[in-house]
């Protein structure tokens, strides 16, 4: 059966200007318990690839440059 994707606003936001994933950093991707973050092939920066967040915060707490912000996802606000 055909598949479609539907839009969702994701809680984890990465500030590309601060993110150093293009220098080889993978800290946020490494620590995420749900494994939802990835490094973009296009920008070289981290981003939330899968909307499966527990809004737990290791990505934000462990980021060495303060580039990651965890927001409360919209439906919970």
């Amino acid at each position: 059966m055909p598949l479609a994707s539907y839009q969702t606003s994701v809680p984890v936001v990465v500030d590309d200007a601060k993110c150093i994933a293009d220098k080889g950093c993978t800290v946020c991707v490494d620590v995420c318990p749900l494994d939802v973050l990835r490094i973009s092939d296009m920008t070289g920066k981290a981003y939330m690839a899968y909307d499966e967040c527990w809004y737990c915060m290791p990505c934000e707490a462990d980021c060495p440059t303060g580039a990651v912000t965890v927001n409360i996802p919209y439906l919970l606000r």
């Binding site: 499966e52 967040c53 527990w54 809004y55 737990c56 996802p73 439906l75 919970l76």
Partner: peptide, 13 residues
């Protein structure tokens, strides 16, 4: 009931 399958009490992993 939040609409998030991973918005569980326990770590969703």
């Amino acid at each position: 009931t939040s609409g998030y399958m991973f918005g569980t009490y326990e770590n969703a992993a």
